[in-house]
Amino acid sequence: MHSDFRRTISDERQLVYDAEHGAVDRMWPTTIGDAISATTVPASGATTSALDSASSIVSAYFARLLSVLEDHAEQLSREIIFQGREGLTATRIDDLVEPHANELLDYASEPIYGAGFIATVDLLADAPSHLAWWQGADRRKLVFPPRSVKQGIDYRELEWFRIPSLTGNSHVAGPYVDYLCSDEYTMTAAAPVLVDGNFVGVAGLDVLIETIERRLTPPLRALGFPVLLVNGVNRVLVSTDPRLSPGDVLRHQPVLDRRRCDAVDLEIVVLH
């Protein structure tokens, strides 16, 4: 991927986000709210426009997070190239990653719970696999005791590592109970780090479901329709429908309509 191209995408995402947030703060309660209060039975046109609005709110939210993360992934990739891939050690990678992790954790717009880089299995000279990860209020570096349950986990199988490694694209994984890192109910955004076209690991950040709920519930509530935000396996991230809560999975509930989000593999669902 060419960096200028990426820059353009990032800027566009930023603009979309800013536009949406202006809209969230000022427009939804008036225009959409009035449209809905005018009729007690939701007309299908109103459902459609609420779904579109919900989808752009969610897309903008994740697009902004991903663009920040992708910028760091790209910088990190340049630093690894500058440093030289040969003889790269765990300590050296930690030194390269830590400033990026700190910057992500400093991200003002949204509380980020954890951030860092996870190396592919054969990247480092002195370790078969490595997580350079900082998390929590005190930004503690993650260290696993050897042979603990956590140490034994093959993260190549985990969604946030597997999908960027296979597709070469960023991915937002979860929600899931992240017993590897945070021990919290989390979404993980991950961007591939490429060196000379080869995948060398993912740059990632964790956002707690609680954080996302706090951010997305008010604008989604303001749509006036109960909606669900679900992931690829129909698991609920955020819900303004009292019948389902975060963590529940859509199974037999009758779906009225659904809409994909642009920047991220998530969907908005409205139930009957």
């Binding site: 349950v149 034994g152 109970v177 017993y179 919290e184 963590g247 529940d248």
Partner: peptide, 25 residues
């Protein structure tokens, strides 16, 4: 044993409950 423990923990984590998963650990 480690694999059995890990699989059991993974299954409990599918409850989507952070509290239950932490207590399980």
């Amino acid at each position: 044993r480690q694999t059995m423990d890990d699989l059991q923990l993974e299954l409990v984590a599918l409850s989507q409950s952070a509290r239950l998963t932490r207590d399980q650990m």
